[in-house]
């Protein structure tokens, strides 16, 4: 599924969070959405997942204007804990089973096993690392056409980060696309094939990662430093 953002703008009172963005997400790719805090990454993801509405512009799913039905095409994992406080991991699986036709319970159980999580665990007693793994597991278990992972590596130790990256690469849907927002650029270097750099709500730069390496002989980290030098990440 091809997702296009045309002239997308989101304003909050005096601040413009996303400013006339034009982007296209193609199936079969893993995108990195990069930029310091407040650059508009989360707002863009929330607009694509249908949780926030734009002030201007449009989002097209395979050329059709976004409707509530497209929530079924997008699997979104926000950076915060978003499950109900009473839930166990099993309850979360049941919830996804109930509401999302593309949820693969068998895959979810496999991912839980790989991530050392058990269904009877209570969400509110999970550590931040376990919770991050849980969010990845439940989101990737939806065989959605577009997977949006907002800061999946935030507050996670190095070993868990590696495990999460491996899982994302291993289980990314072949016919869908994955968008990962992060300011931990090093971890994404080997994972993504397209990088979008955001600054103050606009696209500062976007590039095919292979092209960046070949033509400019730069890594994503080099480019990140070049774009944001002098800014606090």
């Amino acid at each position: 599924m091809k997702v296009q953002c045309n002239n997308l703008t989101k304003r909050y009172y005096t601040k413009t969070a996303v400013d006339h963005i034009n982007l296209t997400f193609e199936p079969g790719h893993i995108y990195a959405l990069l930029g310091p805090n407040g650059s508009g990454k989360s707002t863009l993801m929330k607009m694509i997942s249908g949780l926030t509405t734009q002030n201007d512009g449009e989002i097209l799913f395979d050329g059709e204007k976004q409707t509530w039905r497209n929530k079924g095409d997008v699997a979104y994992a926000p950076t915060e804990a978003f499950f109900f406080s009473y839930m166990t991991i099993k309850n979360v699986a049941e919830y996804y089973d109930d509401f999302f036709a593309d949820f693969d319970r068998t895959l979810f159980q496999k991912l839980l096993q790989e991530m050392d999580l058990r269904e009877e665990m209570k969400i509110k007693s999970l550590s931040s690392g376990m919770l991050a793994k849980m969010k990845i597991a439940v989101t990737l278990s939806r065989r959605a056409k577009m997977i949006l992972l907002d800061e999946p590596l935030n507050g996670i130790d190095l070993m868990s980060r590696d495990a999460i990256i491996k899982t994302i690469i291993g289980y990314a849907p072949e016919d869908g696309c994955v968008v990962i927002s992060s300011h931990m650029v090093e971890e994404l270097e080997k994972t993504v094939d397209y990088a979008i750099f955001m600054r103050e709500g606009s696209i500062a730069y976007e590039t095919d990662v292979e092209e960046l390496r070949e033509k400019e002989t730069k890594s994503i980290v080099d480019k990140y430093r070049e774009i944001y030098s002098g800014e606090v990440a």
């Binding site: 997942s49 249908g50 949780l51 509530w68 039905r69 497209n70 929530k71 079924g72 979104y76 926000p78 915060e80 804990a81 978003f82 499950f83 109900f84 406080s85 919830y95 509401f99 999302f100």
Partner: peptide, 14 residues
């Protein structure tokens, strides 16, 4: 509350 995401991300009309 962020749990609102779980409610409103489901593919059903508001």
């Amino acid at each position: 509350n962020k749990s609102g995401y779980l409610v409103y991300m489901t593919p059903q009309p508001a």
